[in-house]
Design a binder for these strands. Structure first.
Length: 194
DNA sequence: GCAAAGATCGGCT
DNA sequence: GCCGATCTTTGCA
């Protein structure tokens, strides 16, 4: 089944945890590619100084203050995009960063886009999964439900989930808002724990 | 206006 | 484990 707004409107940390095991599907560029989400991070509103939204709405983060279930894509480090899903009520500006996928469909297209044949390197990082699925800034602000190029599915898989501090940030580092599929070899490297 | 940091990755030591 | 690539956004003058 395809997930709808009532799913994304829940508490952001809950959504981040529930997203582990769900399937992200892309048909961009005429290739069907998909992967199971194995790692996410929650980014909250003004109490979370690591979140783009903590100082309030701006030109870049405005999508975070829009409807839940929409996509927030941003450009970082001069060369990478990251993919987020807007969550919670619109006025607080919260979202979940997708950090890693286990590749399922369209391995050939992913290998071509990523320039590697190593399955464990195709989508094991936030910028990697964006590249593997052909996502770019044109997806910023689009809705997941009813989309023709990018959406999420639930195939009923039950997945054990671990949690811990987020990666690659310098503020609010103590918050345990990172979630990953316990024992999965497809999570991003810098987050070692099982 | 300018300077610095940033939710990263890949290559090299 | 460290470093450079590369450019947008933000903070401060």
């Amino acid at each position: 089944m395809v997930l709808g707004p009532e799913f994304y409107s829940q508490d952001t940390a809950i959504v981040a945890r529930l997203l582990i095991g769900k399937i992200l599907v892309s048909t961009k560029g005429g290739h069907r590619t998909s992967g199971r989400i194995v790692e996410t991070e929650a980014y909250l509103g003004m109490e979370d100084e690591a979140s783009h939204s903590w100082r309030g709405p701006s030109a870049r983060n405005s999508v975070m203050f829009g409807p839940a279930g929409h996509i927030y894509v941003y450009f970082i480090y001069g060369m990478h995009y990251c993919l987020n899903i807007v969550t919670g009520p619109p006025e607080v500006g919260e979202a979940v960063l997708l950090r890693a996928l286990e590749p399922l469909e369209g391995l050939g297209a992913m290998q071509q886009r990523r320039g590697t044949e190593l399955t464990s390197s195709l989508a094991s990082g936030p910028a990697k999964l964006v590249q593997a699925l052909g996502v770019d800034i044109s997806d910023n602000g689009t809705a997941l439900e009813g989309a023709e190029e990018l959406w999420l599915e639930d195939d009923g898989t039950e997945q054990a989930v671990s949690s811990g501090p987020r990666i690659g940030i310098s503020r609010s580092t103590h918050l345990p808002l990172r979630f990953w599929a316990t024992g999965s070899p497809f999570v991003s490297k810098r987050g070692t724990p099982g």
